[in-house]
């Protein structure tokens, strides 16, 4: 069972367990700070496929297979898969999951999709008819560039506020049955975010477009749960990058909420901003997915982090809306993840 409180926060009576997770990245991610934590790094960005879209599907497939292997379960044990990516009509997810022959839900939440899939998966698991749900998201620099921007070989310059789409993904297996694990990572609560738009129109500054929604989601969650930032080891935003992270802190400061001591951002963690020529940081559905399923959950397992807020952030733009001169709405979903002792 679960309870809705305040502004749409959902608290789970029985926590939802993260029984397995896996991450996949490519060369640039392998050259970054998370290299030692990523489960599978393929230096060939094509992942052996003929098109970039198929490469992205391959990333999802690898991530799911790896997470199933780590959980020591088969695809038949999964009730359904919730997958998402950035491509039109979510084809990265469709072709990634189609051969698995299990029920499928395709999601679009831009770069917030990892958090969105975890939120939806968790709510499904409050129903005892289900046992295991797989949440997977991905992005690919090359497929995103050709869809949202320019051909890869086009000679253009990137602005300092732009972010680099991560080539990678992550898969998490959620369960309401902890089996024989004694200590586990659990989802205690979620908050589905509201769309916020403060008039940013620059598609090369998505951090600024997403920061207001992240600020609202964090503030409302803290209000709903009567907690403060210091109650958490880490407040991890999706991919606000350098610009968005700075703006988020400023927006929350106006509300007398100080997250400067324990905030970090997946877009800042996935690459080395000084050495890897990514301007304001990483982005894409794969950005928060790979950071969560490599470094963050591993550090939670080790006990470095015990209580975190994972806030996936997405810029809900399309090439059409940008060309028509529309502003960029942002969305942020929050997942409260904790390390708990499980009484079996």
């Amino acid at each position: 069972m679960s309870n809705k409180i305040g502004n749409g926060t959902i608290i789970f009576d029985n926590p939802i367990y993260i029984i397995s997770y896996a991450s996949v990245g490519s060369k640039k991610e392998g050259d970054g700070p998370l290299a030692g934590y990523i489960d599978f790094i393929c230096d060939d960005t094509t992942f052996g496929e003929k098109t970039w879209e198929k490469s992205e599907s391959r990333i999802q497939k690898h991530a799911v297979e790896k997470s199933l292997l780590k959980a020591d379960i088969s695809v038949r044990d999964i009730d359904f898969i919730i997958a998402g990516d950035l491509l039109n009509q979510c084809i990265g997810s469709t072709y990634g999951s189609k051969d698995m022959d299990i029920p499928f839900i395709g999601l679009y939440g831009a770069c917030s999709t990892m958090a969105e899939s975890l939120a939806i998966g968790s709510v499904f698991l409050t129903n005892d008819s289900f046992e295991n749900i797989c949440c997977v998201t991905s992005s690919h620099f090359c497929s995103a560039e050709r869809q949202f921007r320019f051909p890869l070989e086009y000679g253009g310059q990137r602005t300092p506020t732009s972010q680099w789409t991560v080539t990678g993904g992550g898969s998490v297996i959620l369960s309401n049955n902890p089996k024989d694990i004694e200590e586990g990572i659990v989802i205690k609560a979620i908050k589905i975010g509201k769309i916020k738009d403060l008039g940013i129109k620059d598609a090369n500054n998505m951090g600024a477009a997403m920061a207001p929604s992240a600020a609202y989601t964090i503030k409302e969650y803290l209000d709903d749960t009567l907690t403060k930032p210091s109650d958490y080891d880490l407040i991890l935003t999706g991919d606000l990058g350098e610009v968005g992270s700075g703006l988020l802190k400023k927006l929350l400061e106006r509300e007398n909420i100080d997250i400067s001591k324990n905030h970090n951002d997946c877009g800042l963690m996935v690459y080395d901003l000084d050495k890897q020529d990514v301007n304001a940081g990483g982005s894409g559905c794969g950005c928060s997915a790979i950071t969560l399923t490599s470094y963050i959950l591993k550090k939670m397992e080790e006990g470095v982090y015990k209580n975190i807020l994972f806030v996936g952030t997405g810029a809900l733009l399309s090439t059409t809306s940008i060309q028509q001169g529309d502003t960029i709405p942002g969305i942020s979903h929050l997942i409260h993840i904790s390390k708990s002792n499980i009484v079996v």
Binding site: P160, L198, N205, A208, V243, G246, L247, L251
Partner: peptide, 15 residues
């Protein structure tokens, strides 16, 4: 926060 106020904040934050 109005859009204009946010734009000011954004200008300061964006390199």
């Amino acid at each position: 926060l109005t859009n204009k106020e946010y734009e000011e904040l954004n200008k300061k934050a964006s390199k």
